[in-house]
Design a protein around this nucleic acid. Structure first.
Lengths: 222, 222
DNA sequence: TAAATATTTTAGACAAACCTAAAAAATATA
DNA sequence: TATATTTTTTAGGTTTGTCTAAAATATTTA
């Protein structure tokens, strides 16, 4: 029988579980899903049951959820759609890189495969989206460019920002204040023992970046 | 207060009522809406109540519905989105003109105004969509190119197909069989008294077109 | 114009996707 | 390890948008 289309909600849960599970490698807690989606844990439990019944995830009561192979495949296709639309919005429609996420969040649920493949072709099969995230191809294969974070650099080392992991407005506006975007060069001037904050030179100005933020910014060492 | 976003369903009803009402000029029956949307009349009544309460339509029990000014404005914006996406799908992604409707039907509900205006700009502010239908501008203004139908031609007159009104797969495949698309030249050879059918010459072949179909194909006289 | 037929509305039900409050289980802490 | 805290689930409720069956109204036709 046909793998009946998922609802927008189901797609959002699946994508979230896939992401939280580190591409399918970890168990995911109900609470963590609840926090990302801004939906009460009780409701998350409901949807977990639903996705379990469809064999898109495995769930053990009170323990957590793991995504299945079938679930991963679908999640990757949703991520593919999201990232391709982001390329379109950024490269063709000239949206700023921090404006594209929310719109792509809507567009990703328009599920014509034909549409996505034609869009892919039109965009010339891009490998990464404007945040530096890799775009799965038609078959769901992803170029794993496993970059290090800013926290992976030592004092006096340099890197070029290649990928921004978090996607929320607050994070983006912070990055804007710090003058950080894809391609920005960063020099580590000091690492503060107390809490792991990093003092870095960006466009000739010294800034302090908290450890948490630094972990969410991937770079290429130079 | 903000004119709270309409749901996908509400948008579909509003668009349907606008279209059936001949751009706001006629009353629309509950049954006609039911038929277009493939939703039971009882459910249509429910939604009519909802849209009435929001003052998007006026409704008189057992009489019918008329779209309000506010409703028209919204409907026109939905139609604008639909037609701009159709241009994108056809001109940029190379979809055939009969494949674009269903996908545009989904895309039209992604309601970022910024997105639509940037798309409009990217497409160079097109005036008509691939079916020949006029595209409302940002302000909701529509170039009224009120063309005549095939039925408006007399024997031995000629026209160029400029607009296809119906948008369903059956109609499209029929047109394909008849070799009719935007730009096709048609010569009226005979009009059959019995039922108003039209015998026409298209690409050097004579075909019979029923009155009903002929009414849904607009042309420019030549 | 009265009866038959159509259309439209009301009433009551259901699934999807959420919610709150309370119970159950797991985990942390004293 | 017993108790307190946190996490997860269950139970029951709500809204949205649909349905079917039956009642009310309008229209057609005999």
């Amino acid at each position: 029988m046909l793998p009946k289309q998922l609802s927008k909600s189901e797609e959002n849960y699946l994508k979230t579980i896939f992401n939280l599970s580190d591409s399918g490698n970890k168990q995911v807690s109900t609470n963590s899903i609840s926090k990302i989606l801004n939906i009460e844990p009780a409701s998350v439990t409901d949807m977990i049951k639903k996705l379990s019944k469809k064999k898109l995830i495995y769930h053990e009561k009170y323990k957590g959820s793991a995504i299945s192979k079938k679930g991963s495949k679908l999640a990757i296709q949703i991520i593919r759609r999201h990232r391709l639309w982001e390329v379109f919005l950024h490269d063709k429609l000239q949206f700023k890189w921090n404006e594209i996420h929310d719109i792509a969040e809507e567009l990703e649920h328009v599920s014509s495969e034909d549409l996505i493949n034609k869009l892919d072709k039109y965009l010339k099969y891009p490998k990464i989206d404007p945040h530096g995230d890799p775009i799965p191809n038609k078959l769901g294969e992803i170029d794993l460019i496993d970059k290090i974070s800013i926290t992976g650099l030592k004092i006096s080392e340099r890197g070029i920002v290649s990928r921004i992991i978090k996607e929320d407005e607050n994070f983006f506006s912070l990055l804007k204040k710090l003058n950080i975007e894809i391609g920005t060069e960063i020099l580590i001037e000091d690492i503060i023992d107390y809490d792991g904050s990093i003092e870095a030179r960006i466009e000739n100005k010294s800034v302090i970046i908290s450890k948490n933020i630094a972990e969410n910014i991937k770079i290429t060492k130079i």
